[in-house]
Amino acid sequence: MARTTNWVVLGLTLTFLIGPFIIIIFAGASAGESLAFPPAGLSLKWYAKVFTVESFRQSFMLSMFLAVFGTLAALLIGVPAAYALNRYKLPGDETIRTIVAAPIIVPGIIVGLALLRYLVVPLDFTVTMALFFAHTALVLPYAVRVVSSSLHNLRADMEEAAVLLGCSRLQAFTKVVLPNIRGGVLAAFILGFVTSFNQVPVSLFLSGPGVRTLPIDMLAYMEITYDPSVAALSALLAFMSLAIVFAAERLLGFSRYV
């Protein structure tokens, strides 16, 4: 009895959480002209159309660029910061921690607007640059947190031993620490990638003629055309995210780090 109740509750919850996604997959596979479920016959024409829309191609490239390089940049400054916060007794380390974590607390729409008003307009930054900075800042807290937790699990005396055995501090880091937190860094990268790629509010104001991230472009497309191609694109993107996450899970047990 208790078992049945258990599965009923879980079944209902999961239907609510995942059902809409399944509907999107099928609505995108419609043979008809408008978005509907159940679809008017099945066809892959809208999935094919996605690849012919030029603005999707452009905005996909921009979103990819931001997600990959924004996350790499965040790791580049985030990993040393996480290392320093874990291994050194720094003056003001709480302040540093708060500053680095701040982007997670401030609503994205405000970040986008602030960067537009005070970087793009007066300092002549391009919108793409502002997007790059915004996405880097947004991913930074995740990078620091995830890498911190994997550094936390790594005993500091290993590096000390390496230093005693004649390594420089940098060698100790690259030869001993880095290989051991590889999984954490990769997990941070994937988390950062997915966060950046799906980000909407930050990019809302940071768009200009011809410069739009993919989610913003999808919103704009939906306003203009009401065909199932946005559903098809949504489904494709979801599969892309899932493939990345599953590959990571297979390779290194991604969920241990998140």
């Binding site: 996604f21 609505a27 799906n198 946005v230």
Partner: peptide, 20 residues
């Protein structure tokens, strides 16, 4: 399965509700 929706774009997840 519970974590899975978090990996999916909120645009897609909201869009579905128009249909529903």
């Amino acid at each position: 399965l519970v974590v899975l929706p978090l990996m999916i774009s909120p645009v897609a997840r909201t869009y579905a509700w128009i249909v529903i």
